[in-house]
Every structure is written in C-alpha cells, then in structure tokens.
Design a protein around this nucleic acid. Structure first.
Length: 271
DNA sequence: CCGACGTCCTGCTAGC
DNA sequence: TGCTAGCAGGACGTCG
C-alpha cells in the first residue's frame, strides 16, 4: 500500500514526535509479522533515545542514539504512528513502544505483510538493502535509466514495480507516472526511445513530488505518522478510474492485469 | 539468467 | 437481504 510518498509522509510526521524521545520498552501481539520480531532485541532498544528518522525506498529507518536502527516496512496495510498512551490501541496493533512522554510508538498492520526488524548499525542494514533497492528516483542518473530500460523485454509496469531497478514506485504511482508520461504500460523497456525514457523518469519524479506535497494517497488503511489521511487520491488521473472518462480526452480509462497487478491507463493518450 | 506467477494475511464489496 | 469469489498502496520464493 504505502509507496514512497506515503512512507515519506510518515517519516516527516514522526520526526517531531519521536526525535529526542526515549523508548521505554516493547509490547507485542501474539501474531507473527512477515519477519519475526525477536525478543532478544527488546533489552537492546529499551532506554535508547531516537536520534533521527530516514527513508530509503519504501523502508523506514529509526536511528537510535546508540547507533542501532529499527527498520520498518509497512507492506500493504501497515501503520506506524505515535499516539497518546491513553488512546486505546486499535485491533491488529502488533508492536507498541512506550515513550517517555505518555505517548506510544505503534505498529499496526491488518494483513501483516509488513515488518519491524533491528539492525545493530548502519552498515548492516545498508548491506541488507543493497541488493534489494535501486536508486531513489531523484538520484537515478538518466543515462543509467535509459540503459536499464534498453536491456529489458519486460513491460513498463513490471519495470516500475521492480524495487531493484528504481526504489519507491508502487502500483498507484506506476500507473500515474505512465499516464503523465503518455506511455502505454504494456510497452517493453527496450521499445522506448531515449526521449521517452527521459520523459518517464521526469514524470515519475514529478508525480512523486506532487504526491508528497499532498501527504500521499489514502485508499483504505493508510495514515501518516500522526494519524492524518493523505490527499493525493483526489488527484488520480488513471489509478482507480476504470471506465471513467480520461481527464484529457474523455476516452474511458481501461483496467487490465499487468505484472500481476491491476493497471489503469488511457488507451488513447498513452502510446 | 530472466520473467511470470503463486503465496503470505485479513477485510471489504461487487455481483449474483 | 445474504452469500461468496475476488481483489487490495508489497515483496519474495519458486518454477519454467
């Protein structure tokens, strides 16, 4: 669910709520997350002060004063929020970190595709992510992007969803980026001209930046770090608009299955 | 090696 | 009105 703009919003929301706060301990539910939470981490975290929050792709990194990190992935339905301790926890809250100010850092995840894991230091998580994540969209060198596309027979949708090629794009923003770039998501990477590849990267960056400014998109579960919903769902031009008229040419938006995901596009504008 | 597809999990709803 | 098949912001393992 949460893609780069939603994860970035969570991180920005959490910074003023978490930095300088001390973790008082850990409470957890009986349910297993995608990656197992280890009880051995709990004494290592307790008493640690939050020094910084970072985002890399769709991953959140909570940097602790002692040099260790909590690495969080929200999966499809994850929520990572700070709430007053006297506000009752919602169902599917799997990890609770009481803070030193009568608040709690809470990880809630209905489908449990998300995870929270502990890393002893920065090199350890950087190594863990190194073979999983390509560059951030704004760090992607246009020459490298053209090279990536030129050597693959996969369709654009599959390329955009592949986190090892470019980090942070998910199902919503893949569709919105293809629409903005006027490219048919069924096109193969190696069919794009250099100009088309450049256009796609430009539009990915623009769409993601605009979505961050709107605090991301709330379809169902997503909320920011303080519980606020996103606003970019009102700006969708392709995603979720099946059968509705294209906002440019009135042609009904089509929905097909691509890379195993529902894919929305305008068959007239996107070529 | 690359690309396609099933699987993990729960909740909601479109369509019968 | 009531039921259920199918689908949902993701990632990863397996198979051909």
């Amino acid at each position: 669910m949460p893609e780069l703009p939603e994860v970035e919003t969570v991180v920005r929301d959490l910074r003023p709520l978490l930095i300088g706060r001390t973790l008082q301990g850990v409470r957890r539910s009986a349910h297993a997350l995608r990656k197992t939470w280890s009880a051995e981490w709990e004494p290592l975290l307790t008493g640690q002060t939050v020094a910084a929050l970072h985002r890399r792709g769709k991953w959140i990194l909570v940097e602790l004063g002692g040099g260790a990190f909590l690495m969080v992935h929200l999966g499809m339905t994850g929520q990572f929020t700070v709430r007053a301790a006297d506000v009752p926890g919602e169902t599917h809250t799997h990890l609770v970190f009481p803070l030193d100010n009568a608040h709690e850092l809470r990880f809630r995840d209905v489908r449990r595709f998300g995870s929270v894991t502990y890393f002893a230091d920065r090199p350890t998580w950087e190594t863990f992510l190194s073979d999983k994540l390509g560059p951030e969209p704004w760090d992607m060198d246009p020459n490298a992007w053209r090279a990536i596309l030129s050597v693959t027979a996969r369709n654009l949708k599959a390329v955009l969803l592949d986190q090892t090629l470019i980090a942070g794009v998910g199902n919503i923003y893949a569709d919105e980026s293809c629409f903005a770039a006027k490219l048919d998501p069924r096109r193969t990477g190696n069919s794009l001209t250099a100009a088309e590849a450049n256009r796609l990267l430009t539009e990915i960056r623009r769409v993601l930046t605009t979505a961050i400014e709107s605090r991301g998109s709330t379809i169902r579960d997503y909320v920011g770090g303080s519980g606020l919903m996103g606003g970019y769902q009102d700006e969708f031009r392709a995603y979720g608009r099946t059968g509705e008229p294209c906002l440019k040419c009135k042609t009904p938006i089509e929905c097909i299955r691509l890379a195993g995901r529902s894919t929305h596009f305008c068959p007239n504008c996107q070529r």
